[in-house]
């Protein structure tokens, strides 16, 4: 029988509550970024629980691999897909949501009841002896990996290389045409319809130089070209100050 002291009990309960909270948050957040953050919480608490379970190596790996690498990957992909993209909460498949919740609850109930009744009264051995044998937890795991699980370990390396290659192939974008050279690009620019030079900066000849203030052309008319696209799209264009127009007319008449 191992001794689970009060300290561990406190750690367990705190971490258990936090991890369940994180898990529920993960599946209920509307935005993917929030889900990812909730998942990070669960991962970290799980790492703590591993360490509490006499698995310090796995706890470290959990933090490095999950909260480090995997989470970064998730966030990176979320960035690609769009941070703001959020799910609508309307379920499109009829009956899916309540059936899913029902089945999930049933699974939890059955496993909790089954495992609880199966494990009740079974004495736990504890890992003190196993960890001591090779001089520590890391050494113990290393011993196993490079003896009993050597083949599995080698095969895993093949799996990782395949996965890396697969990801590269999948993420690769096909080029249908040769990449245009600088010469071709400049020719296209000067032969094209658009004016090849710079667009007017916002605020030119105007009274303000804020980004939403359109530049005035020499005849006093404002040009929207000087406003950045997103502002134009939102319609955030400041009205042209009539005094500026008059000033230009005066300058002309001189």
């Amino acid at each position: 029988m191992i001794d689970t002291n009060t300290g561990e009990a406190v750690v367990f309960w705190i971490c258990a509550i936090l991890s369940v909270l994180g898990a529920v948050g993960l599946i209920t957040s509307r935005k993917a970024v929030h889900s990812a953050l909730w998942m990070a919480l669960t991962m970290v608490t799980l790492a703590v629980l591993y360490i509490a379970n006499a698995a310090p190596f796995l706890g470290m790996v959990q933090i490095i691999v999950y909260t480090g690498a995997v989470m970064m990957l998730f966030l990176f992909v979320i960035m690609v897909v769009g941070v703001d993209a959020s799910d609508s909460l309307i379920e499109t498949i009829k009956g899916q949501r309540w059936a899913a919740v029902l089945l999930g609850a049933a699974l939890m109930l059955i496993m909790v009841w089954g495992l609880g009744s199966a494990l009740a009264g079974i004495p736990a051995t504890g890992l003190e002896f196993a960890n001591r044998q090779d001089g520590g937890n890391v050494q113990g795991i290393a011993h196993l990996i490079f003896t009993d699980y050597l083949v599995v370990f080698e095969v895993t390396s093949a799996l990782l290389i395949t996965a890396a290659l697969g990801a590269m192939v999948l993420a690769h974008r096909e080029h249908w045409k040769p990449k245009p050279t600088q010469e071709e690009l400049s020719k296209a620019r000067f032969l094209g319809e658009e004016h090849p030079g710079n667009r007017p900066n916002p605020g030119i000849y105007a009274r303000h130089n804020a980004v939403d203030t359109p530049a005035l052309l020499p005849d006093g008319t404002p040009t929207e070209l000087s406003i950045p696209g997103p502002l134009r799209a939102r319609g955030d264009i400041a009205p042209v100050d009539i005094e500026d127009v008059h000033a230009i007319e005066e300058a002309d008449s001189l």
Binding site: I93, Q96, A99, A100, L103, G104, A106, L107, I110
Partner: peptide, 13 residues
């Protein structure tokens, strides 16, 4: 896919 996953979960249960 989610419908299929649902039936898989039902089977697992």
């Amino acid at each position: 896919i989610r419908s299929y996953a649902l039936s898989m979960l039902g089977g697992a249960i």
